[in-house]
């Protein structure tokens, strides 16, 4: 297994409350890894620690290492903007930039990271929107507000926006929880398409979703990682009683 991102003996606190407890989790290259577990199990906190977005909140603290290609993202010489350029994120609720057009939403990240010489913004925007399976729906209204789009389209726009800066890893925090079933299906198909080029780590409380799209699955409970393995193993042959109880719907 070629590990892209390795979470090692990692803990995180909000004030006195320990949200993530001594987690070690490998995220394999060009695979989809899902974190499942009930609300409040620390799964969202963990992925917000992977691009260090949790640091925006006062009173957060972490321990342990997160190795991206063998380099600890918590080391002192890690540049936050560079880190977040390499590790992109899609949020739980679609959050397109409300003051920008559809085009500028996709272009925003490229503008801050710098357009590579020899590339054209129009091409990057089109390519990103195509990858997010949104191009045909928005190509005639690129200069309209993103708020004229449906929730599912907005979320795919957010995915296109994240893809435009060509991250190596894509973090997805319950990307379908605010979407209807049809939009959810589209986003799931998209995730399956994207994994040939990106390493994806997604959080979901929807077990069927994890079973459908993830290659590897980790089960979290109360901040601890209870079990990790191939998705098929976790769902057909869980080793821990708590995993079995959760996936069979006995709690959560």
């Amino acid at each position: 297994m070629n590990v892209k991102l390795l979470v090692e003996e990692f803990s995180a606190w909000y004030g006195k409350n320990q949200a993530v407890k001594d987690v070690t989790l490998p995220v394999p290259l060009h695979q989809v890894t899902a974190i499942i577990g009930p609300s409040g199990c620390g799964k969202s906190t963990l992925i917000r620690c992977l691009n260090r977005l949790h640091e925006l909140l006062p009173g957060t603290r972490t321990k342990g290492r997160v190795m991206l290609d063998g380099q600890d993202i918590y080391s002192d010489n890690m540049d936050l903007a560079e880190l977040r350029h390499r590790i992109g994120m899609v949020f739980q609720k679609p959050n397109p930039f409300s003051t920008m057009s559809i085009f500028n939403n996709v272009a925003a990240g490229v503008r801050v990271n710098g357009l590579r010489p020899g590339t054209k913004m129009e091409d990057i925007v089109e390519k990103s929107l195509r990858m997010a399976a949104l191009w045909d729906e928005v190509k005639d209204r690129l200069h309209e507000s993103p708020y004229n789009l449906s929730g599912g389209q907005q979320q795919r726009l957010c995915i296109a926006r994240a893809l435009a800066v060509e991250p190596e890893v894509l973090l997805m925090d319950e990307p379908c929880s605010a979407l209807d079933p049809a939009s959810t299906l589209k986003v799931e198909e998209l995730i399956a398409d994207l994994k040939s080029r990106y390493t994806i780590l997604m959080v979901t409380h929807n077990m069927q979703q994890a079973a459908r799209v993830a290659d590897y699955t980790a089960f979290f409970l109360n901040g601890q990682m209870i079990e990790y393995g191939l998705t098929t193993e976790i769902f057909t042959n869980p080793k821990d009683k708590r995993t079995e109880d959760y996936i069979s719907g006995r709690f959560g």
Binding site: L53, H85, F91, K93, N95, V112, C158, R161, V165
Partner: peptide, 18 residues
């Protein structure tokens, strides 16, 4: 200004000023 808007920009690799 919603936190989600700012987080979205930071998550793209923008600096505080950007």
């Amino acid at each position: 200004v919603p936190r989600s808007q700012q987080e979205a920009m930071l998550a793209l690799g923008a600096t505080r000023w950007e």
